[in-house]
Amino acid sequence: MDVVISPDRIQVLPHNQYHTADALSPASVAPSPLDQFRTWFAEAVQDAAVHEPEAMSLSTATPAGIPSARIVLFKQLDARGFVFFTNYTSRKSQELLANPHAALVFYWREIHRSVRVLGRVEKLAAPESEAYFKSRPLGSRLGAWASKQSTVVAEGEVHARLDRLKERFGADGDSEAADVPLPEFWGGWRVVPTEVEFWSGKPSRLHDRVRYLRQADPADEADPVWKIERLAP
């Protein structure tokens, strides 16, 4: 990529074309976007060139429609949707509580693929969050307790709190067996998709785009029907 940087502007010049070999079309994808995602995610994981395939952009919004976005880590895909974990007092969680809708974007630059997800959100049941929390390394479990996420802190405050927590939970020796329970303010969110788009980069910006739209039918909550369409690049 060529970039011109001067004191008053940044200009990104045209760069390399995309060259995905596969043809993406409504006829080539799985009937369910979750099944299609499993296929693409597995391929991204297996491709050594793709770094952190689980990284995704999460966008939330206030009830007034003011958006915010950040990168989080995708952790689970179940029969209902996409799961990530966070502090329930964080900005993202507070916005999701007030406006229970979210957007996700995965971008696997090295293989010129992207997945975009829109949906409503729901909290994971506490046992599900606890099962995942127990699988985390000790440092991550302690970190969940130590960080009052998204709040303003003084220099050194978080590490001082971490030291106190190590003593509280008997984790001074960094033993992975230390009993660090799930905080009541921490857990999972599930994005239940209503729209999923798969994007495959092609030369001359004539990309392949296939969109799944969930059809509104409460009777199909457990096995939704999806309308599959091609979108213009």
Results as ranks from 00 to 15, higher is better:
Gln76Thr: 04
Leu77Ala: 11
Glu221Ser: 14
Gly201Gln: 00
Gly65Tyr: 09
Arg168Phe: 11
His207Thr: 13
Ala61Arg: 05
Val192Arg: 06
Val153Asp: 12
Thr62Asn: 13
Ala48Trp: 02
Met56Asp: 09
His19Phe: 10
Val83Glu: 04
Met1Tyr: 14
Ile111Val: 11
Val115Asp: 00
Pro26Tyr: 11
Gln76Phe: 01
Ala30His: 05
Asn99Leu: 11
Phe198Asn: 00
His112Asn: 12
Glu197His: 09
Leu206Ala: 08
Tyr18Val: 14
Asn87Cys: 04
Thr60Ala: 14
Gly170Pro: 14
Val153Lys: 13
Phe41Leu: 08
Val158Met: 09
Leu142Ile: 06
Arg190Ala: 05
Lys123Gly: 06
Pro7Glu: 12
Leu58His: 05
Arg164Gly: 11
Gln149Phe: 01
Leu13His: 12
Pro67Gln: 09
Ser204Trp: 15
Glu110Pro: 11
Glu43Gln: 12
Asp172Lys: 15
Gly65His: 10
Thr86Tyr: 00
Ala178Thr: 06
Lys227Asp: 13
Tyr132Asp: 04
Glu157Tyr: 03
Glu167Ala: 12
Ala146Arg: 10
Lys148Gly: 06
Ala232Leu: 15
Glu128Gly: 01
Glu167Val: 13
Arg120Cys: 06
Ala232Met: 15
Val115Asn: 02
Pro26Ser: 04
Glu155Leu: 15
Val45Thr: 12
Pro137Asn: 05
Ala125Ile: 08
Gly201Val: 03
Val121Phe: 10
Arg38Gly: 04
Leu34Pro: 02
Phe106Met: 13
Leu77Tyr: 09
Arg9Tyr: 13
Val115Tyr: 00
Tyr18Pro: 06
Thr89Leu: 13
Leu124Ser: 07
Ala44Phe: 14
Ile111Glu: 06
Gly187Arg: 02
Ser129Pro: 00
Asp2Val: 02
Leu24Thr: 00
Ala178Lys: 02
Pro7Phe: 05
Leu96His: 10
Ser175Ala: 07
Gln76Ala: 01
Lys202Leu: 09
Glu43Tyr: 09
Ala49His: 13
Trp199Ile: 05
Leu162Val: 02
Phe74His: 01
Ala30Gly: 03
Arg109Asp: 13
Arg230Asp: 03
Pro26Ile: 13
Tyr212Gln: 07
Val3Leu: 12
His112Lys: 08
Val158Arg: 09
Leu162His: 05
Pro183Ala: 07
Phe41Val: 05
Arg116Ile: 12
Lys166Pro: 07
Trp189Phe: 15
Val152Asp: 06
Ser114Trp: 04
Glu157Met: 06
Glu54Phe: 14
Arg70Glu: 13
Ser68Cys: 13
Asn16Ile: 15
Ser175Leu: 08
Gly81Val: 09
Arg136Lys: 12
Ala126Pro: 14
Ala98Glu: 15
Lys148Asp: 07
Arg190Pro: 02
Arg116Ser: 11
Ser135Glu: 07
Val191Met: 11
Ile71Ser: 06
His15Thr: 14
Lys202Asn: 04
Ile66Phe: 11
Arg113Pro: 00
